[in-house]
Write a protein that binds this DNA or RNA. Structure first.
Lengths: 218, 218
DNA sequence: ATTGAAAGCAAGTAACTACTTGCATTCACG
DNA sequence: CGTGAATGCAAGTAGTTACTTGCTTTCAAT
């Protein structure tokens, strides 16, 4: 029984992954059961025997994708903000880029299939919460301007990450910075916006060396 | 002949507008010719007689929408940056919000129908160019930090506008600021990021009064 | 009044959709 | 060996899709 079930899980898993790939390419309406079966290398009937219906298959697919979400974390007590945020930002970008096609499709189909929102929202909204907490701690410790509008800056930062992650591959001209430099530059702009970096601020100027403009140190 | 043609233009226009509405709701695959004909109040055959095919109809629709693009402009010589940018930002947001559903759908279908990109790109990319020029002028005049990373700040600002315009109605929890305050706050964060606003800067502090934090003036 | 273009209407086509049914095949386990 | 669950295969169903055809109606211009 157990070995038989492992074989069943195998085809189930193959169908789920194939469904994700086909959905990422063609969306819900375009992801026909026939295409998914071919992509999975299984018979189309097995698809209905395993999941019952196309809708149930996609529900299972979304849940299985939502299950595996190892989001990056920020330290509780801020150290080198530029460094810590750049690493975190790069990990966050990589994480969201993994699902960019699926996110794009789910986003476009949000009005018709709102349940898809959970998958694409959890990542950015958790990231926003973490970043807001981190920035507030920076303010508390005196490393950021306490008059800064942290919620708005965080919202703009997350929007930018989201936009970069899901747009860069299809609209490259909209992103002037190369992919490898982007995290550090995004973080620099963010830190300047909350008064934690820049010419007239208390932030240690050497941090800027990690980014791009070295004249600040002079 | 001319009057007859005006009647023909009428149905043609009705079909085009109906196609835009149905496409905004259901996407390309979901926007069936039957639905469009019903929405336009015309016979389905008239649709094919006028445009030949569904693909040709949508091509015409995208072109007719790309034609009407009165984007807001920024003054050549910067005056009150906070005020000017807030007005511009509000107009830009309103402009993009007009097409939010269509943009969402086109964005999700970019891989399958790349020609849709032109419609949704022209707005943001023109806005980015205008904002970059404005910010650079601010730097030149000495109203902004010349060490600021203007291209990145502009890219993040446009991403944030784009994200707000097309996401706020479907993911309201992702936008903490009320719709009417958003432009001023976005602009404040942007100006701080390029060193044109805030505690330790040369920007006239009264500008901040238009925004949200009044303690800066004290 | 006649003409002619534009539109409606009913019907049909071929392909595709999700989904079903019945039967044959495989193959690990007892 | 044989039992039984998982899978494959062939065929079919009912509905939808884009698109066509043939005919009738409307109605402004001559």
């Amino acid at each position: 029984m157990t070995l038989l079930r492992s074989a069943a899980m195998d085809t189930r898993e193959r169908i789920l992954q194939a469904a994700a790939r086909v959905y990422a390419q063609h969306g819900f309406r375009g992801a026909t059961t026939r295409l998914i079966a071919i992509e999975a290398g299984v018979n189309e009937v097995s698809l209905f025997r395993t999941f019952g219906s196309k809708a149930a298959l996609f529900e299972a697919m979304m849940q299985s994708h939502a299950a595996s979400l190892p989001l990056p974390t920020l330290p509780d007590v801020p150290g080198d903000a530029q460094l810590e945020l750049t690493d975190w930002c790069a990990a966050l970008l990589a994480h969201m880029r993994q699902w960019r096609s699926i996110i794009r499709k789910s986003f476009g189909e949000l009005e018709e299939r709102p349940e898809a929102a959970t998958v694409m929202c959890e990542g950015p909204s958790c990231a926003a919460t973490a970043l807001a907490a981190y920035a507030t701690r920076l303010q508390t410790v005196g490393l950021a301007d306490e008059t800064a509008d942290v919620p708005t800056a965080v919202s703009m930062f997350i929007s930018s990450m989201f936009g970069d992650a899901i747009s860069r591959d299809v609209l490259p001209h909209a992103f002037p910075q190369p992919e490898e430099d982007a995290p550090a530059r995004y973080v620099s702009v963010f830190l300047r916006a909350i008064g934690a970096l820049g010419a007239g601020d208390a932030a240690p100027p050497r941090i800027a060396q990690d980014a791009k403009d070295r004249r600040v140190t002079a």
